[in-house]
Design a protein around this nucleic acid. Sequence first.
DNA 1: GAGTGGTCTAGACCACAAG
DNA 2: TTGTGGTCTAGACCACTCT
Lengths: 256, 256
Amino acid sequence: MAGRDQLVAEPLYKRAEQAMVARIVEHTWPPGHRLPNEFELAEEFGVSQGTVRKALIALEGRGLVARSPGRGTFVVRTTPQEALYAFFRLRDAGGALVVPEPLSETVRVRRANAEERKRLQPPARDVIVLERVRQHAGVPLAQETMRFSAALCKGMEDDLPLPNSLYPYLQDRFGIAIMSARERLAAVLADEASAAALGVAVGAPLLEVHREARDLADRVVELRTSRYVTGDARYEVDLTRSTSRTDPAPSRLQHL
Amino acid sequence: MAGRDQLVAEPLYKRAEQAMVARIVEHTWPPGHRLPNEFELAEEFGVSQGTVRKALIALEGRGLVARSPGRGTFVVRTTPQEALYAFFRLRDAGGALVVPEPLSETVRVRRANAEERKRLQPPARDVIVLERVRQHAGVPLAQETMRFSAALCKGMEDDLPLPNSLYPYLQDRFGIAIMSARERLAAVLADEASAAALGVAVGAPLLEVHREARDLADRVVELRTSRYVTGDARYEVDLTRSTSRTDPAPSRLQHL
DNA sequence: GAGTGGTCTAGACCACAAG
DNA sequence: TTGTGGTCTAGACCACTCT
């Protein structure tokens, strides 16, 4: 009824899932909110409890809700710890998370350039540019430039100093929940600006990381460029053949 | 019964899953093999069809089997395409996969050093060391050194030239199925050897990637060091907050 | 003790693939 | 036409959390 682009009706559990995603995105169910129990949801959507459960398990897999036996199902809230673990990939030789602390920070607002207007969603007229240098164990480790739409983060430029963990702040202050990011890495040589900021020689090797971060609705809400001094630290990532992620169906592997 | 380390019995669907994993690992069900249907498996394990299905869905999520409506469930076979997509992360500016071709290749067998004996599983006495330079669009792109246990890959040193895609070869030739890998990245400067191999100046920036690759049984079976010239290419990775992966339980997030 | 999610079962009906 | 996996339902019983 709602659309004619689907000849075969969407499965009930997917419709229930989408309905619940919508409530989370629109903050009808804000972060930390406890959902109605499975039977109440089932009645509300006109399906069985088992069908609701399937939708909830999918939402749990997507990281939108957390389910806990005996307590209920809750809309996930970004915490500094998990945001760090998921999106900050630097680890020391022992595999332990390297937690960098702010060393300096500047913010400015300016008109968005063509690239920013094209990539940020919805298209931004102005952007907030946040530049940071962060240190670890007393030595500068990272030079970061973050860009956000000024319309989405109204007033961010007046919140200095900003918290070390930016994503929980974005969620609390602006209702923006970062859910995923794509990063592109390359090795570069330190130019004069980076060398000065990071306390290394011009021509020192730096790991340059471009990040495009997306929110709950899969909109690109942050552009970030980071340059890391990978002395003892390593950018660590796990690769896997598994399907996983949002939809367990996109793979149709051949079998013989 | 089988063990006393579990006060609470493992759920039936997990036991079924483990039983099926064992069959795949031991090649009782070889790659490409079609599994019995859900009702037959259910009878065999003494559980209901729904329980078997839950186990199969988990196996599908782990990438061990592929399920196809009307046809059946099959043990996954590594193909060059998917191995490339999952484990080779270099992409060009447009996001398209960069497919490198062999330029040179050498193999030798030597006694394993302390690091190799410690990290490879089972501990290797001798290792096969494969060195490659690969090119893309006519220019050298990557210098790679792979190390495998000689006991696991008996005869590999006589198979020159080895196929471009190594993982399908490992599967066909030795029954080794690479399922996951951990990579650690850093920016380095080209030394004389790398500069000569890759046709760049000494001191040029290179992306150095250390890989530890694991098989079906989660054993480390390959150690690899790669150095990439990241001219136009970028190492691309997707980060996500989602739980996903093998077990949907390891996260017990707080909610308020 | 009351309420929640976790496991497990049993069966109905459908869509898709292949002979 | 037959067999497969995909969806959906309905209900039983358990373990855990909180009051």
